[in-house]
Protein backbone atom coordinates (compact mmCIF):
# COMPACT_ATOMS: atom_id res chain seq x y z
CA UNK A 1 0.00 0.00 0.00
CA UNK A 2 0.94 3.60 -0.30
CA UNK A 3 3.58 5.38 1.77
CA UNK A 4 4.03 9.10 2.26
CA UNK A 5 6.30 11.56 3.99
CA UNK A 6 5.13 14.39 6.20
CA UNK A 7 7.02 17.15 7.95
CA UNK A 8 7.52 16.53 11.63
CA UNK A 9 5.76 19.66 12.79
CA UNK A 10 2.54 18.73 10.97
CA UNK A 11 1.33 15.86 13.16
CA UNK A 12 -0.56 17.97 15.68
CA UNK A 13 -2.26 19.91 12.88
CA UNK A 14 -3.35 16.68 11.17
CA UNK A 15 -4.87 15.37 14.37
CA UNK A 16 -6.65 18.69 14.85
CA UNK A 17 -8.01 18.64 11.30
CA UNK A 18 -9.26 15.09 11.74
CA UNK A 19 -11.14 16.23 14.83
CA UNK A 20 -13.48 18.20 12.55
CA UNK A 21 -14.60 14.97 10.91
CA UNK A 22 -14.01 12.33 13.59
CA UNK A 23 -13.92 11.86 17.29
CA UNK A 24 -10.14 11.79 17.79
CA UNK A 25 -8.65 9.98 20.75
CA UNK A 26 -5.07 11.07 21.27
CA UNK A 27 -2.51 11.22 24.06
CA UNK A 28 -2.97 14.30 26.21
CA UNK A 29 -1.18 15.52 29.31
CA UNK A 30 -3.18 15.32 32.48
CA UNK A 31 -1.22 16.42 35.52
CA UNK A 32 1.73 14.00 35.76
CA UNK A 33 0.34 11.49 33.33
CA UNK A 34 -0.28 11.10 29.65
CA UNK A 35 -3.58 9.42 28.94
CA UNK A 36 -5.71 8.75 25.88
CA UNK A 37 -8.66 11.07 25.79
CA UNK A 38 -11.03 12.46 23.11
CA UNK A 39 -9.60 15.77 21.88
CA UNK A 40 -11.67 18.77 22.89
CA UNK A 41 -11.97 21.66 20.44
CA UNK A 42 -8.51 23.25 20.01
CA UNK A 43 -6.98 20.84 22.51
CA UNK A 44 -3.38 19.93 21.69
CA UNK A 45 -2.40 16.28 21.60
CA UNK A 46 0.91 15.42 23.21
CA UNK A 47 2.89 13.21 20.86
CA UNK A 48 6.25 13.52 22.63
CA UNK A 49 5.12 10.91 25.12
CA UNK A 50 6.61 7.57 26.14
CA UNK A 51 3.45 5.56 26.54
CA UNK A 52 0.07 6.39 28.00
CA UNK A 53 -0.65 5.59 31.63
CA UNK A 54 -3.87 3.81 30.68
CA UNK A 55 -4.16 1.17 27.98
CA UNK A 56 -6.26 2.46 25.08
CA UNK A 57 -8.39 -0.72 25.09
CA UNK A 58 -11.03 1.41 26.82
CA UNK A 59 -11.91 2.94 23.44
CA UNK A 60 -13.33 -0.40 22.28
CA UNK A 61 -14.03 -1.95 25.66
CA UNK A 62 -14.90 0.90 28.04
CA UNK A 63 -14.42 0.58 31.76
CA UNK A 64 -18.19 0.76 32.05
CA UNK A 65 -20.67 0.64 29.21
CA UNK A 66 -24.42 0.37 28.89
CA UNK A 67 -25.62 -2.69 27.00
CA UNK A 68 -29.33 -1.99 27.09
CA UNK A 69 -32.08 0.00 28.70
CA UNK A 70 -35.30 -1.25 30.21
CA UNK A 71 -38.40 0.20 31.72
CA UNK A 72 -41.13 -0.88 34.07
CA UNK A 73 -44.64 -1.81 32.96
CA UNK A 74 -47.57 -3.13 35.00
CA UNK A 75 -46.42 -6.66 33.99
CA UNK A 76 -42.81 -6.18 35.06
CA UNK A 77 -39.61 -4.62 33.77
CA UNK A 78 -39.26 -4.99 30.01
CA UNK A 79 -36.53 -4.39 27.50
CA UNK A 80 -36.63 -0.88 26.03
CA UNK A 81 -33.62 -0.40 23.76
CA UNK A 82 -30.22 -1.67 22.85
CA UNK A 83 -27.44 0.84 23.54
CA UNK A 84 -24.71 0.41 21.01
CA UNK A 85 -23.39 3.74 19.80
CA UNK A 86 -20.10 4.14 18.00
CA UNK A 87 -18.92 7.48 16.65
CA UNK A 88 -16.64 7.63 13.64
CA UNK A 89 -13.38 7.63 15.53
CA UNK A 90 -9.66 7.97 14.96
CA UNK A 91 -7.30 6.64 17.57
CA UNK A 92 -4.25 8.78 16.89
CA UNK A 93 -0.78 7.92 18.11
CA UNK A 94 -1.19 4.60 19.85
CA UNK A 95 2.00 2.63 20.55
CA UNK A 96 2.63 -0.63 18.63
CA UNK A 97 2.22 -2.80 21.73
CA UNK A 98 -1.22 -1.36 22.40
CA UNK A 99 -2.25 -1.70 18.75
CA UNK A 100 -1.12 -5.33 18.99
CA UNK A 101 -3.54 -5.76 21.90
CA UNK A 102 -6.45 -4.87 19.60
CA UNK A 103 -5.53 -7.74 17.28
CA UNK A 104 -5.54 -10.04 20.33
CA UNK A 105 -8.86 -8.75 21.67
CA UNK A 106 -10.43 -9.18 18.21
CA UNK A 107 -9.81 -12.92 18.51
CA UNK A 108 -12.01 -13.08 21.58
CA UNK A 109 -14.74 -10.54 20.91
CA UNK A 110 -15.11 -11.30 17.19
CA UNK A 111 -15.35 -15.09 17.25
CA UNK A 112 -17.31 -16.95 14.64
CA UNK A 113 -20.12 -18.13 16.89
CA UNK A 114 -20.67 -15.34 19.38
CA UNK A 115 -19.98 -11.84 18.15
CA UNK A 116 -19.67 -9.09 20.73
CA UNK A 117 -21.40 -6.38 18.79
CA UNK A 118 -20.55 -3.62 21.26
CA UNK A 119 -16.82 -4.16 20.82
CA UNK A 120 -17.03 -4.89 17.09
CA UNK A 121 -19.14 -1.82 16.36
CA UNK A 122 -16.60 0.49 18.01
CA UNK A 123 -13.71 -1.34 16.40
CA UNK A 124 -15.27 -1.12 12.92
CA UNK A 125 -15.87 2.59 13.33
CA UNK A 126 -12.35 3.38 14.47
CA UNK A 127 -9.17 3.91 12.47
CA UNK A 128 -6.06 3.06 14.45
CA UNK A 129 -2.99 5.22 13.79
CA UNK A 130 0.13 3.78 15.39
CA UNK A 131 3.09 5.94 16.33
CA UNK A 132 6.13 3.68 16.32
CA UNK A 133 8.59 3.60 19.22
CA UNK A 134 11.87 4.58 17.54
CA UNK A 135 13.39 4.46 20.99
CA UNK A 136 11.93 1.99 23.47
CA UNK A 137 10.24 4.18 26.08
CA UNK A 138 10.90 2.15 29.23
CA UNK A 139 13.37 -0.34 30.66
CA UNK A 140 10.33 -2.50 31.42
CA UNK A 141 9.31 -2.83 27.74
CA UNK A 142 9.49 -6.45 26.55
CA UNK A 143 7.39 -6.45 23.37
CA UNK A 144 9.98 -8.43 21.41
CA UNK A 145 9.46 -11.42 23.72
CA UNK A 146 5.73 -11.59 22.96
CA UNK A 147 5.57 -11.34 19.16
CA UNK A 148 5.76 -7.56 19.03
CA UNK A 149 8.28 -4.98 17.89
CA UNK A 150 8.77 -1.30 18.73
CA UNK A 151 8.22 -0.42 15.06
CA UNK A 152 5.33 -2.66 14.05
CA UNK A 153 2.00 -2.36 12.24
CA UNK A 154 0.10 -5.19 14.00
CA UNK A 155 -3.41 -3.97 14.76
CA UNK A 156 -2.74 -0.66 13.00
CA UNK A 157 -4.51 0.89 10.02
CA UNK A 158 -1.78 3.51 9.59
CA UNK A 159 1.78 3.30 10.91
CA UNK A 160 3.75 6.51 11.47
CA UNK A 161 7.51 6.26 12.06
CA UNK A 162 9.89 9.08 12.94
CA UNK A 163 12.73 8.74 10.45
CA UNK A 164 14.70 11.80 11.48
CA UNK A 165 13.77 14.73 9.24
CA UNK A 166 10.30 13.46 8.45
CA UNK A 167 7.62 11.04 9.50
CA UNK A 168 7.09 8.07 7.23
CA UNK A 169 3.36 7.35 6.96
CA UNK A 170 2.41 3.82 5.86
CA UNK A 171 -1.17 2.92 5.07
CA UNK A 172 -1.57 -0.61 6.34
CA UNK A 173 -5.23 -1.34 5.63
CA UNK A 174 -7.86 0.01 3.21
CA UNK A 175 -9.49 1.66 6.24
CA UNK A 176 -6.24 3.53 6.86
CA UNK A 177 -5.87 4.45 3.22
CA UNK A 178 -9.22 6.26 3.32
CA UNK A 179 -7.54 8.91 5.48
CA UNK A 180 -4.65 9.35 3.02
CA UNK A 181 -5.77 12.85 2.04
CA UNK A 182 -4.86 14.11 5.52
CA UNK A 183 -1.22 13.28 4.97
CA UNK A 184 -0.12 15.59 2.14
CA UNK A 185 1.09 14.64 -1.32
CA UNK A 186 4.71 13.65 -0.81
CA UNK A 187 5.27 10.04 -1.79
CA UNK A 188 7.91 8.22 0.24
CA UNK A 189 11.05 7.25 -1.66
CA UNK A 190 13.17 4.11 -1.31
CA UNK A 191 15.63 5.99 0.91
CA UNK A 192 12.89 6.67 3.45
CA UNK A 193 11.98 3.01 3.55
CA UNK A 194 15.59 1.97 4.03
CA UNK A 195 15.91 4.50 6.82
CA UNK A 196 12.80 3.13 8.52
CA UNK A 197 14.15 -0.42 8.35
CA UNK A 198 17.39 0.71 9.98
CA UNK A 199 15.52 2.56 12.70
CA UNK A 200 13.20 -0.38 13.31
CA UNK A 201 16.12 -2.78 13.67
CA UNK A 202 17.93 -0.43 16.03
CA UNK A 203 14.81 0.00 18.15
CA UNK A 204 14.36 -3.74 18.30
CA UNK A 205 17.90 -4.23 19.48
CA UNK A 206 17.39 -1.57 22.13
CA UNK A 207 14.74 -3.65 23.91
CA UNK A 208 16.88 -5.21 26.60
CA UNK A 209 14.22 -6.82 28.76
CA UNK A 210 13.57 -10.32 27.48
CA UNK A 211 11.43 -13.08 28.92
CA UNK A 212 10.94 -16.74 27.85
CA UNK A 213 7.23 -16.19 27.12
CA UNK A 214 7.00 -18.85 24.41
CA UNK A 215 9.24 -21.31 26.18
CA UNK A 216 6.97 -21.64 29.20
CA UNK A 217 3.93 -22.91 27.27
CA UNK A 218 4.93 -26.61 27.36
CA UNK A 219 5.94 -26.17 31.02
CA UNK A 220 2.56 -24.66 31.91
CA UNK A 221 0.83 -27.51 30.07
CA UNK A 222 2.01 -30.00 32.67
CA UNK A 223 2.57 -27.93 35.81
CA UNK A 224 -0.84 -26.87 37.05
CA UNK A 225 -0.05 -28.47 40.42
CA UNK A 226 3.59 -27.39 40.66
CA UNK A 227 4.73 -26.02 44.07
CA UNK A 228 5.87 -22.85 42.31
CA UNK A 229 2.32 -21.50 42.41
CA UNK A 230 2.54 -21.23 46.19
CA UNK A 231 5.58 -18.98 45.88
CA UNK A 232 4.29 -16.18 43.63
CA UNK A 233 1.31 -14.52 45.27
CA UNK A 234 2.72 -13.89 48.79
CA UNK A 235 2.90 -10.13 48.53
CA UNK A 236 -0.07 -9.68 46.15
CA UNK A 237 -2.67 -7.31 47.60
CA UNK A 238 -5.42 -8.45 45.19
CA UNK A 239 -5.84 -4.80 44.19
CA UNK A 240 -6.38 -5.70 40.53
CA UNK A 241 -4.20 -2.86 39.23
CA UNK A 242 -2.29 -5.21 36.92
CA UNK A 243 -5.49 -6.30 35.19
CA UNK A 244 -6.83 -2.73 35.07
CA UNK A 245 -3.69 -1.46 33.35
CA UNK A 246 -3.34 -4.47 31.05
CA UNK A 247 -4.16 -3.88 27.36
CA UNK A 248 -5.32 -7.48 26.88
CA UNK A 249 -7.25 -8.23 30.07
CA UNK A 250 -10.87 -8.46 29.04
CA UNK A 251 -12.79 -9.99 31.95
CA UNK A 252 -16.02 -8.20 32.78
CA UNK A 253 -19.02 -8.19 35.04
CA UNK A 254 -22.62 -7.54 34.01
CA UNK A 255 -24.89 -5.73 36.43
CA UNK A 256 -28.19 -3.88 36.60
CA UNK A 257 -28.90 -0.35 37.79
CA UNK A 258 -32.39 1.00 38.35
CA UNK A 259 -33.47 4.62 38.78
CA UNK A 260 -37.16 5.14 39.27
CA UNK A 261 -39.10 3.36 36.54
CA UNK A 262 -36.13 2.85 34.26
CA UNK A 263 -32.91 0.97 34.38
CA UNK A 264 -29.83 -0.06 32.50
CA UNK A 265 -27.81 -3.23 32.19
CA UNK A 266 -24.14 -2.38 32.16
CA UNK A 267 -20.91 -4.20 31.84
CA UNK A 268 -17.79 -3.17 33.73
CA UNK A 269 -14.27 -4.42 33.91
CA UNK A 270 -13.74 -7.18 36.40
CA UNK A 271 -10.57 -8.91 37.54
CA UNK A 272 -9.45 -12.49 38.14
CA UNK A 273 -7.42 -11.03 41.01
CA UNK A 274 -10.60 -10.37 43.03
CA UNK A 275 -11.79 -13.07 45.46
CA UNK A 276 -15.44 -12.64 44.45
CA UNK A 277 -14.72 -13.11 40.76
CA UNK A 278 -15.51 -16.83 40.81
CA UNK A 279 -17.43 -17.10 44.08
CA UNK A 280 -20.72 -18.91 43.61
CA UNK A 281 -24.03 -18.26 45.36
CA UNK A 282 -23.59 -21.44 47.40
CA UNK A 283 -20.38 -20.01 48.87
CA UNK A 284 -18.22 -22.43 46.90
CA UNK A 285 -15.23 -20.78 45.23
CA UNK A 286 -13.10 -22.80 42.82
CA UNK A 287 -10.22 -20.35 43.27
CA UNK A 288 -9.93 -20.15 47.02
CA UNK A 289 -6.83 -18.00 47.47
CA UNK A 290 -4.59 -15.53 45.67
CA UNK A 291 -2.42 -18.50 44.72
CA UNK A 292 -5.09 -19.90 42.42
CA UNK A 293 -5.89 -16.39 41.10
CA UNK A 294 -2.27 -15.74 40.16
CA UNK A 295 -2.06 -19.13 38.52
CA UNK A 296 -5.15 -18.21 36.50
CA UNK A 297 -3.62 -14.89 35.43
CA UNK A 298 -0.39 -16.51 34.25
CA UNK A 299 -2.13 -19.51 32.69
CA UNK A 300 -4.66 -17.33 30.88
CA UNK A 301 -2.01 -15.17 29.29
CA UNK A 302 0.65 -17.75 28.46
CA UNK A 303 -1.29 -21.00 28.05
CA UNK A 304 -5.10 -20.77 27.75
CA UNK A 305 -5.04 -17.96 25.17
CA UNK A 306 -2.42 -19.88 23.23
CA UNK A 307 -4.57 -23.04 23.38
CA UNK A 308 -7.66 -21.17 22.20
CA UNK A 309 -6.29 -18.57 19.79
CA UNK A 310 -2.68 -19.54 19.18
CA UNK A 311 -1.47 -16.21 20.59
CA UNK A 312 0.06 -15.05 23.87
CA UNK A 313 -2.25 -12.61 25.66
CA UNK A 314 0.51 -10.20 26.62
CA UNK A 315 2.00 -7.41 24.52
CA UNK A 316 4.97 -6.57 26.72
CA UNK A 317 3.94 -2.99 27.49
CA UNK A 318 5.20 -3.34 31.06
CA UNK A 319 2.32 -1.41 32.60
CA UNK A 320 1.60 -4.15 35.16
CA UNK A 321 5.27 -4.16 36.11
CA UNK A 322 5.37 -0.39 36.59
CA UNK A 323 2.01 -0.08 38.34
CA UNK A 324 2.10 -2.95 40.81
CA UNK A 325 2.17 -1.43 44.31
CA UNK A 326 4.25 -4.32 45.67
CA UNK A 327 6.56 -4.78 42.66
CA UNK A 328 5.25 -8.18 41.67
CA UNK A 329 6.91 -8.49 38.29
CA UNK A 330 5.37 -10.82 35.72
CA UNK A 331 8.72 -11.00 33.91
CA UNK A 332 10.27 -12.58 37.00
CA UNK A 333 7.32 -14.98 37.32
CA UNK A 334 7.76 -16.13 33.71
CA UNK A 335 11.52 -16.52 34.20
CA UNK A 336 10.97 -18.61 37.33
CA UNK A 337 8.46 -20.84 35.55
CA UNK A 338 10.95 -21.37 32.74
CA UNK A 339 13.35 -22.85 35.29
CA UNK A 340 10.94 -25.62 36.31
CA UNK A 341 12.60 -28.89 35.41
Amino acid sequence: MEKRLIKKNTLTGIAGKMADEFKVWAPVKQEENVIFSPLEKNEQPFFAYLNSKNAPKQIFFPHTETLMKYTSTPKGMVFAAEENKADKTVLFGVRPCDAHSFALLDMLFDQEKYKDQYYINKRNNTTVITLACVEPPYATCFCTSVDGEPVDDKGADILITDIGDNYLVEFVTPKGEKLANYFGETKADAAAETKKKEIAEKAKQAIKSKIPAHEIKPILDVNFENPIWATIHGKCLACGTCTWMCPTCHCFDISDEVKGNDGVRIRSWDSCMFPLFTKETSGHNPRTSQKERWRQRVMHKFKYYVDNFNAIACVGCGRCVMSCPVNLDIRKVVEDIAKIK
Binding site: L108, F109, Q111, K113, Y114, D116, F224, H250, C251, F252, D253, I254, R267, D270, C272, F277, T278, P286, Q296, M299, H300, Y304, D307
Partner: peptide, 13 residues
Protein backbone atom coordinates in the same frame (compact mmCIF):
# COMPACT_ATOMS: atom_id res chain seq x y z
CA UNK B 1 -22.00 -13.81 33.56
CA UNK B 2 -21.95 -13.55 29.76
CA UNK B 3 -22.60 -17.21 28.97
CA UNK B 4 -20.75 -16.91 25.66
CA UNK B 5 -17.10 -17.35 26.63
CA UNK B 6 -16.06 -13.71 26.85
CA UNK B 7 -16.32 -12.43 30.42
CA UNK B 8 -13.60 -14.81 31.52
CA UNK B 9 -14.73 -16.34 34.80
CA UNK B 10 -16.06 -19.88 34.20
CA UNK B 11 -13.00 -21.45 32.63
CA UNK B 12 -11.60 -24.78 33.73
CA UNK B 13 -8.20 -24.76 32.09
Amino acid sequence: KCGIGKCGRCNVG
